[in-house]
Amino acid sequence: MKKTDILMTGVGGQGVILASDALAEIAMKAGYDVKKSDSLGMSQRGGSVVSHLRLGRQVFSPMIREGEADFLLAFERLEGARWANYLHQGSVAIVNDLAIPPLSVVGGASAYPGTAEVEEILHRYTDRLFIIPGTRIAQELGNPQVLNVLLVGFLSAFLDIDEKSYLDDLSQRVPQKVLQLNLRAFARGREEALARTQGK
């Protein structure tokens, strides 16, 4: 039961919490002690969302310290860069290449960081950075809402939990009519990760 700290970040409405709930449940069933803590702020839609997920033999604090996250799973670029200082050398950062500009940017008060800038910020902390076109792939699969399952699929390739656990959880969690779509999204995310890590 290796200590594994996962930070999942995004924007309200993207399904970050649903994804971390599912992953927490899967990890518990796989035998880990699990603690999970979400910060949602006040807005239902459009605010920064961060979910701390900690797995291990025995976990005390439900919150991850700066520099301690082993994985960052960011559903949006800016929300990926924002948590960069939680990473350490060797951490895996997975960032969905999607920009949701906050209103301060829209109003012209500040600038939205470009992909290169986000990469640069994250690279200061870790070399293992994966920027993936998750939203585009989800759209190709037929529904941008499956982004969260796709990203969990990508992350799953790095975790010490067997694939069947994820599939079992999905089968229980999502309605029958969208199950096939969700299974495809998971498989696609996982394949993407395996393709990118082979030979490295």
Partner: peptide
Amino acid sequence: AAMYAVKKAVRDLPLRPPLLCP
């Protein structure tokens, strides 16, 4: 090993204040 300090690059990123929903 490293005392925590809000790193400038991260601190300067635009905030995402809460908003009314569409």
